[in-house]
Amino acid sequence: MSAQNSGPWRWSEALLERLLPETTRETIAGDLREEFVEGIEPKRGRLRAQWWYVRQVAGFIPWFAKEGRGMSKVLMTLSTVVLACAPWLAVMETILRHPGYAGRIAEAVGIAAICAATILAKMLHAGVVVERWLWLGAGALIVLGATAFLQNARAVHFEGFVMVISLLLVAQWVLMLATMGRKGGGSRPSVI
């Protein structure tokens, strides 16, 4: 197979390039393509080589997460959106007064508080200890998000707004775990 029609799946290569910072995107993607074409594919065959490439791409995710490349900004944006949505949810529950509305109002207030704390912690560059306390908030978010998602999926009257909010909460949880409470990110000094 020639080098022209050989190579990793386009989507996996594109994903790798999305994950990498601009400064290293070209060289790393080039190295992996070279290794794929000249090293892995001839030895392991096309399908296993593709699997190897996908694993390599997945291997960059922890690096991406540790360095917090742009993810803190995404987390801030997401927290702001959810913070804006939470009071609206509380107001709607107050107006509609469906069974169990008081509990859902309390949840909306809790979500707003976690979002506000997250935004403040990021804005004020709070220390690792403060950010680690926010992991408790992250835990609450995933429980609320997953519960809302499942309940809404099973409900007779599907509510798109609730579905969107629940997915936002899950995304926020992932970003909080990835970017918060890490001492110095990926640049922390290593010791023996």
């Binding site: 060289t27 190295d31 694993r55 291997g59 960059f60 922890p62 690096w63």
Partner: peptide, 27 residues
């Protein structure tokens, strides 16, 4: 260069190493 370093590290450590780990370390 990156690929050669990755292969050399794998050879010396006698195990598969994630490319991401090598590049993160290089950076």
């Amino acid at each position: 260069y990156g690929r050669a370093v990755l292969n050399r590290v794998q050879e010396k450590l006698a195990r598969d190493v994630a490319a991401g780990a090598v590049y993160a370390t290089l950076e």
